[in-house]
Computed example of a mutant assay.
Amino acid sequence: MPQFFLNKRLIILLISIIVLVALVGFSLRDRENASWPEQFVKDVVGFGENIVSKPVSFVSGTIGSLSNLKNTYQENERLKKRLEGLTQLESKVADLTKENKDLKESLNIQDSIRDFDPINATVISRNPTNWNEQVEIDKGSRDGVKPDMAVMVPGGLIGKITSTGAKSSTVELLSSSDTRNRASAMVQSDPNAYGIINGYSNKDKLLQLKQLPYNMSFKKGGKVVTSGLGGKFPAGIFIGTIEKAETDKMGLSQTAYIKPGADLYQLDHIIILKRTAQTTDSSASDDKGKMTTGGE
């Protein structure tokens, strides 16, 4: 009798395994419609998920909305403070502009090295093999473009015109490896410090501002602009901010590493700066000699 029940249990186990394997094989085969047990299970599970997920989603959305509302309020307060400061700054700039104009008229000054006429252009070509060297633009000599004119984007200076055709020109970027590619620059400090933008670190993505006085200290974040002393570039065009400064090997000058204000990697629309204050060849050469040969 015990042997019979033992065999009976074994038979039931084998039948159960066979049924289970059959059900698994049936469920795994390619079918467009699920069986009614599968549909029932799916419906029950889906109903349960809806019951749980909707309240959770509601609570999560409410908390997220409250968090966004708080962030919006805080951002709004910050923007209000900045707007108040901007209003004061605009008023101050307007007063200084009027005062500057009155002083120019009283001294009979017609042009300034800061003045320029903008020429808008679009980048039409950029070779991947010299991506950091040059770009081609759609304005040329017929549009008033000449070699050595400064080129910028809203973020700051990006380079200068090196050659022109009738309807196109080549712009050499500040990140170019050409050692002759230089720009006369000024660190806005008290007093101001003058140097030459000459060199670019591809690793750090930083410009090199060389020939700075050895006895001056430069803080991170200091603003660097064009000096206008090279005779070609207008003065006061933003270049970037100081990241660090190091004394050279001889100890006679310093080199500052500048984070460019402009995105030199992504360039679409640019502005060519036609300086209105012109210099004679001799005076331009004198200015260059004061700074260094080839500075703009």
Results as ranks from 00 to 15, higher is better:
residue 55 P to H: 01
residue 62 T to Y: 08
residue 85 G to V: 14
residue 78 R to P: 00
residue 84 E to G: 13
residue 71 N to S: 04
residue 56 V to D: 00
residue 80 K to I: 04
residue 77 E to C: 09
residue 57 S to N: 14
residue 63 I to G: 06
residue 78 R to H: 11
residue 69 L to Q: 13
residue 65 S to D: 05
residue 64 G to K: 13
residue 63 I to C: 01
residue 54 K to L: 00
residue 74 Q to I: 08
residue 85 G to M: 13
residue 57 S to L: 04
residue 55 P to S: 01
residue 81 K to H: 09
residue 66 L to G: 04
residue 55 P to T: 07
residue 60 S to N: 11
residue 79 L to V: 12
residue 74 Q to N: 05
residue 78 R to C: 02
residue 76 N to I: 06
residue 83 L to M: 07
residue 62 T to L: 04
residue 71 N to E: 02
residue 77 E to K: 11
residue 73 Y to R: 15
residue 72 T to Y: 05
residue 55 P to V: 01
residue 66 L to S: 09
residue 70 K to L: 11
residue 58 F to V: 04
residue 84 E to L: 13
residue 61 G to N: 10
residue 82 R to I: 09
residue 72 T to P: 00
residue 69 L to R: 14
residue 68 N to S: 10
residue 81 K to V: 06
residue 66 L to D: 10
residue 83 L to G: 15
residue 83 L to I: 14
residue 66 L to P: 04
residue 77 E to I: 11
residue 68 N to V: 08
residue 78 R to G: 02
residue 64 G to N: 10
residue 83 L to D: 14
residue 84 E to N: 15
residue 75 E to N: 14
residue 73 Y to S: 09
residue 75 E to S: 14
residue 59 V to D: 03
residue 73 Y to A: 07
residue 68 N to P: 00
residue 60 S to Q: 09
residue 73 Y to H: 09
residue 74 Q to W: 00
residue 80 K to L: 08
residue 69 L to N: 13
residue 70 K to M: 06
residue 71 N to D: 05
residue 64 G to H: 07
residue 57 S to K: 03
residue 61 G to D: 04
residue 57 S to V: 05
residue 83 L to W: 14
residue 56 V to W: 03
residue 82 R to D: 03
residue 59 V to C: 02
residue 70 K to N: 09
residue 55 P to N: 07
residue 78 R to V: 01
residue 66 L to R: 06
residue 64 G to E: 13
residue 64 G to T: 11
residue 57 S to I: 06
residue 84 E to Y: 15
residue 69 L to F: 13
residue 64 G to R: 13
residue 80 K to H: 11
residue 60 S to Y: 02
residue 58 F to H: 01
residue 83 L to R: 14
residue 56 V to L: 05
residue 83 L to T: 15
residue 74 Q to K: 11
residue 60 S to R: 05
residue 61 G to T: 13
residue 55 P to D: 03
residue 74 Q to Y: 00
residue 72 T to C: 00
residue 85 G to A: 15
residue 85 G to Q: 14
residue 82 R to H: 11
residue 81 K to Y: 08
residue 78 R to Y: 03
residue 69 L to H: 12
residue 58 F to A: 01
residue 60 S to A: 13
residue 64 G to D: 07
residue 81 K to M: 06
residue 62 T to S: 10
residue 76 N to F: 02
residue 74 Q to C: 00
residue 65 S to R: 14
residue 81 K to C: 10
residue 75 E to F: 11
residue 82 R to L: 11
residue 77 E to L: 12
residue 75 E to L: 12
residue 75 E to V: 09
residue 70 K to S: 12
residue 67 S to R: 14
residue 60 S to P: 06
residue 82 R to W: 06
residue 67 S to Y: 05
residue 76 N to W: 02
residue 57 S to P: 06
residue 62 T to F: 06
residue 60 S to T: 07
residue 69 L to T: 11
residue 85 G to L: 14
residue 77 E to P: 10
residue 85 G to T: 15
residue 63 I to M: 03
